[in-house]
């Protein structure tokens, strides 16, 4: 598994007009990735929302090949249910532990 399927953990910050719950955010992310890359691209990126807390910080997992593609898809999210949001990736790590240490 290590050879071809290395994982990356993207630490992101959500800027939003109101608080956003985890499932709405996950839907928005999947929607955006799907809209940009279709079924095949979405399956290849192996997305997983590791965590997201109320203060707007989260960790998203994907394969190391798709980091820039996922960054673009996150940047494409502009609103959720009519609420304006913006997502910025602030750090990338190869381990969950490393991602947790990104301030």
């Amino acid at each position: 598994m290590r050879g071809h399927d290395r994982r990356r953990y993207l630490v992101f910050v959500v800027m939003s007009e109101i608080e956003l719950d985890k499932y709405k955010l996950l839907n928005a992310i999947l929607d955006s990735v799907h809209s940009l890359y279709g079924d095949i691209g979405t399956s290849e990126s192996k997305l997983w929302l590791i965590k997201y807390d109320k203060n707007g910080r989260g960790v998203l997992r994907c394969t190391h090949r798709k980091v820039e593609a996922i960054r673009a898809a996150l940047a494409c999210i502009h609103s959720v249910n009519g609420v304006q949001i913006a997502i910025t990736v602030i750090g990338i790590s190869g381990t969950i532990k490393g991602a947790a240490s990104i301030a």
């Binding site: 800027m15 939003s16 007009e17 820039e68 593609a69 960054r71 673009a72 996150l74 940047a75 494409c76 502009h78 609103s79 304006q84 949001i85 913006a86 910025t88 990736v89």
Partner: peptide, 12 residues
């Protein structure tokens, strides 16, 4: 909310 960081624009 319309602003994007430089690295995000580069990815786009």
């Amino acid at each position: 909310y319309g602003l994007r960081a430089p690295r995000e624009l580069i990815a786009l």
